[in-house]
Nucleic acid binder design. Structure first.
Length: 260
DNA sequence: ATGGTGGCCCGGCCA
């Protein structure tokens, strides 16, 4: 076991376009474990050497043009599992697992859904149900497990700048929130929300129409953890600085610090 | 505001 652990999750919206920001951010924030989403890289193009030179082991599950997830760790990285594991029939690279610092960790990029009448919305709900099933194979609620990433779901209306604008759209629909509640009833805790009850704290803002500067965002990037991990959480923040400056992602990193 | 911006990579798709 290791002591204090700084965990983070960040949808980087192309690691190729964002590597210079990710490298600078790692140097500044000094996280121990980072879950990345939307690398948009094939496995062969993943810059594992760049991360190794900064002290991080890594695992990547990618497909090239779209999606792609990774885990970086400087507290050990063992037992990687790609997607849903052997026999996986997921056509998209949205899930990767590794054990880091004694914690079983998943980096997840939940399907967007697009619209409530779209096949991709049904894929989103089925994908979440599959994740719920897979959890049973990774351990139980009394084991240290973290499932962090871009859920493309705002858990409550407090996590959306204007809920009225998202009626009958994805990210806030009742079936999506029920799927998230299923994960929580399995034993996962929204660690950021436990430490930060203040409403209207967001992790994603549309690039368009000055949404970031006008505080029009959503909190869709979540660090869900079983109680043995959640009870160690001492500090939670969304790094809004990373959403500013040159060529930012449209998501900001979510950071959770764990005590010994 | 049925637009707006930015990633993929060059004609639209995806977010």
């Amino acid at each position: 076991m290791v002591g204090r652990v700084r965990l983070a999750t960040w949808n980087v919206n192309s690691l190729k376009a964002r590597l210079f920001r990710v490298e600078a951010w790692l140097d500044e924030v000094q996280p121990d474990v980072v879950c990345l989403q939307e690398t948009k890289l094939a496995d062969g193009a993943f810059p594992s050497m760049a991360f190794q030179s900064l002290g991080y082991e890594s695992v990547h599950h990618g497909e090239g043009r779209w999606n792609g997830v990774a885990i970086l760790s400087r507290v050990g990285l063992e037992d990687p599992l790609f997607g849903f594991g052997p026999g996986d029939d997921d056509p998209e690279a949205r899930l990767v697992w590794a054990t880091c610092g004694g914690i079983r960790i998943a980096s997840v990029y939940v399907p967007n859904g697009r619209s409530l009448d779209d096949d991709h919305y049904r894929y989103k709900l089925a994908w979440l149900a599959k994740l719920r099933t897979l959890l049973d194979q990774q351990g139980g609620a009394s084991d240290p497990i973290v499932v962090a990433g871009d859920y493309n779901i705002a858990p409550t209306d407090d996590d959306v700048y204007d809920a009225a604008r998202f009626v009958d759209s994805t990210h806030t629909s009742a079936p999506e929130r029920a799927a998230l509640a299923d994960l929580e009833s399995w034993g996962l805790v929204d660690t950021f929300r436990r430490l930060q009850p203040e409403p209207k704290l967001f992790s994603w803002w549309d690039y368009r129409a000055g949404d970031f500067h006008n505080h029009r965002g959503m909190r869709i990037d979540l660090v869900l953890a079983t109680e043995p991990v959640a009870e160690r959480a001492r500090f939670a923040t969304i790094d809004r600085q990373a959403r500013k400056g040159e060529k930012p992602s449209d998501h900001a990193p979510v950071i959770i610090d764990l005590a010994d």
